[in-house]
Design a protein around this nucleic acid. Structure first.
Length: 419
RNA sequence: GCCGGGAUAGGGUAGCUUGGUUAUCCUAGGGGACUGUGGAUCCCUUGACUCGGGUUCAAAUCUCGGUCCCGGCCCCA
């Protein structure tokens, strides 16, 4: 037997319906905020991702040569493709450009809970604007998205990469070693950071001041301790967010995010219900366009880890009600099967979702099937009613039955659906 | 890449320590009984030891390796 490749999944109808439902919520929310959907290729020139994230991503990239000897990679994320699209096709559009996307991404990693090799991201980018309000808009959108899913328990943390970068540069860390230091700070591994910093000739006092900055964590009041322009910036972001009703956030200057194209505000959301892979959303402001041959344009974006968000919902016990079909058409006897097919077709034409028994089942079995198909109504076609131009309409939930004229059948079902 | 735990019908499981008839039970799927009414009962039926090698008269069971899943580390664009 052939199973699906490591780290990939099949989505059965129930699961797929649930996913589409939540996907729809996210789309709806993005549109509410004025974003429009885009789609980019599922594979790109490998160079696009290497330019963006450095050659070290290669080891986790699904990369291959195509038959034309081009170096191709399955997309590991969608920000770079979207910015490439912007540089190629949208750079003259009125700013800001607000787009969102939903699609699968691929990373060659070891799968574990909440981590797959094929996974889905829902993201949004605001391109061509660099104001505190831009950042607030992105965060507000992300927050609204998580809420629209019905997610209750999550933490939204906002930081500013500029503050840390500036401080790290000021105390004498060479530029090429910044990432190394940031990585330790991200994990709050101060004991491991100390020898590294000492090695670079950083004084103990500077070190402790740096750690203290990283530890600037808490409610919005801790912003009073954030110095300089970045502090002003974040205070404005927060006040816009407050005005928009987004108040369930924390300030955490230790939010670092992976790579170094982030320039200012950065934020993350995590769901504590998940295990090691609990981050469900991440983003910030950045510039990428200049790497892809465009002019330097500031953007703010984020992506929601769709699979993880759904996993978190599950852990919270949130349930999804499946949507069955409107009607299941079944026959009392074999001589009315053709007529039943005609009735089913007329229902479909009228926009009523209808399924029909074509396994020549007896009534009892057909009703059982209708029940398992979550049909709201069974349309029972029998010779007796047909003589009067009628069928029996059975409400599957209540068992209540009425005789309905065939011409009025679709209307009756549609009206009932409205209630 | 590293450490640990797993894998028995479509789903959930017993059996494994101590190898030994036809691999257990629930559920699901197909058919039937009740012959124009579902989620009830009964009957029939479909369907599994992750794959490959080894030990053995004999392997679901012991052993080695692969694959996949799960928890954690690393990483996480």
């Amino acid at each position: 037997m052939i199973q699906c490749p490591r780290g990939t999944r099949d989505f059965l109808p129930d699961e797929m319906e649930r996913r589409r439902f939540y996907e729809g919520k996210l789309r709806e929310t993005a549109r509410t905020f004025g974003f429009r959907e885009v789609e980019t290729p599922i594979f790109e020139d490998s160079e696009l991702f290497i330019l963006r994230s450095g050659p070290n991503v290669l080891k986790e990239l699904y990369e291959f040569k195509d038959k034309g000897d081009r170096s191709i990679a399955l997309r590991p994320e969608m920000t770079a493709p979207v910015i490439r699209m912007f540089v190629n096709n949208m750079s003259n559009e009125p700013k800001p450009i607000k787009v969102f996307y939903f699609g699968q991404c691929f990373r060659y990693e070891r799968p574990q809970s909440g981590r797959y090799r094929e996974f889905f991201q829902f993201g949004a980018e605001i391109i061509g604007s660099a104001t505190p309000q831009t950042d607030a808009e992105a965060i507000a959108t992300a927050s609204a998205m998580l809420k629209s899913l019905g997610l209750k328990d999550y933490r939204l943390r906002i930081g500013h990469i500029g503050v840390l970068r500036q401080r790290i540069a000021d105390i004498g860390v060479p530029k090429e070693r910044t990432a190394e230091v940031l990585q330790k700070l991200d994990k709050k591994l101060y004991d491991e950071a100390r020898p590294i910093l000492a090695d670079m000739g950083v004084s103990d006092a500077d070190m402790e001041a740096l750690f203290e900055l990283t530890e600037t964590v808490g409610g919005t009041e801790v912003l009073d301790r954030v110095p300089g322009e970045a502090g002003d910036w974040l205070r404005q972001v927060v006040s816009y967010l407050d005005a928009m009703g987004v108040r369930d956030l924390e300030i955490d200057l230790g939010v670092v995010r992976g790579l170094d194209y982030y320039t200012g505000m950065v934020f993350e959301a995590e769901a504590p219900a998940l295990g090691a892979e609990k981050q469900i959303c991440g983003g910030g402001s950045y510039t990428l366009s200049e790497l892809f041959g465009g002019e330097k344009v500031f953007s703010t974006g984020f992506a929601v880890g769709f699979d993880r968000a759904l996993l978190a919902l599950e852990k919270e016990g949130s349930s999804y009600d499946f949507d069955g079909i409107d009607a299941y058409v079944l026959c009392v006897s074999d001589d009315v099967r053709v007529k039943a097919a005609e009735i089913a077709a007329s229902l479909r034409t009228a926009g009523v979702s209808a399924d029909i028994d074509f396994m020549d089942r007896k009534m009892a079995k057909a009703l059982k099937f209708a029940s398992s198909a979550r049909a709201r109504y069974a349309v029972i076609v029998g010779a007796r009613e047909l003589e009067e131009g009628c069928v029996t309409l059975r409400n599957m939930a209540t068992g209540e039955q009425t005789q309905v004229e065939i011409d009025a059948l679709a209307g009756a079902i549609v009206r009932a659906r409205a209630h």
